[in-house]
Simulated scan of single mutants.
Amino acid sequence: MTITPGALPASEAAQHNGAALAAAASAVASVLPSTSPLQVGAPSPGTLGSAMAYAGAALASFEGAVSGNVAVVVGQELVDALANSPLGSLDLAAAVQPALDAAAQALGARVGAARTVPLDLVVNDLGHPFTVVPLQAPGTSAALFLQDEALVSAAQAAQVAAEAAATAAPAATAPAQVGGTTPAPRGLELLHGVIMDVTVELGRTRMSVRDLLALTPGTVLELDRAAGSPADLLVNGRLIARGEVVVVDEDFGLRVTEIVDESAAG
Rank of each mutant, 00 (worst) to 15 (best):
R204I: 06
L202W: 10
A184G: 13
V209N: 08
P175F: 05
E189W: 11
H192C: 07
P175C: 04
G203A: 09
T181V: 12
T199A: 13
T199Q: 15
L190M: 12
G203P: 05
V198S: 02
G187T: 07
T182F: 01
T205V: 04
A184P: 13
P175R: 03
T182V: 12
G193T: 03
V200Q: 03
G203K: 07
T181Y: 08
R210F: 04
P183C: 03
T199R: 15
I195W: 05
T181K: 06
I195C: 02
G180S: 13
A184I: 09
R206M: 06
V194H: 02
V209W: 09
E201N: 07
L202D: 08
T199Y: 14
T181E: 13
I195L: 12
A176K: 14
V209E: 10
M196P: 00
V194E: 02
V200N: 00
V200K: 00
A174L: 14
V194K: 06
A176N: 10
M196N: 08
T205D: 04
L202P: 03
M207I: 02
R204A: 09
D197M: 03
H192Y: 11
G180M: 11
P185F: 10
L191F: 05
G187H: 05
G179M: 06
G193Q: 06
V178E: 02
T182I: 10
L191C: 03
S208F: 04
D197Y: 04
R204V: 05
E189Q: 11
P183N: 01
M207P: 00
T182Y: 01
T199E: 15
T181F: 10
G193N: 01
T199N: 13
T205K: 04
R206H: 10
E201I: 04
T181W: 09
S208A: 12
T182K: 11
P185H: 04
E189M: 14
V194S: 01
P185E: 09
G203R: 07
G179Q: 06
V178L: 15
G180N: 06
A184F: 01
A184S: 11
S208Q: 06
R206L: 06
L190P: 00
V200M: 02
L191E: 03
S208R: 13
H192P: 00
L188Q: 12
I195G: 09
T181Q: 10
L202C: 10
P183H: 01
G180P: 06
L202S: 13
L188F: 05
V194C: 07
E189F: 13
E189K: 06
M207E: 04
G180K: 10
V209L: 15
L188N: 11
S208N: 09
L190D: 00
A184W: 08
V194T: 13
I195M: 12
R186D: 09
R210A: 14
M196R: 09
R204D: 06
G187S: 12
S208I: 06
R186P: 00
P183Y: 00
L191P: 00
L188R: 14
I195Q: 15
Q177W: 08
L188V: 05
L190H: 01
R210V: 09
P183G: 01
A176Q: 12
D197H: 08
L202N: 12
Q177F: 07
P175Y: 03
H192S: 15
A174W: 10
D197P: 05
T199F: 14
R186E: 07
R210Q: 15
L190F: 05
A184K: 08
V194D: 01
A184Q: 14
T205R: 04
G187P: 00
V194M: 03
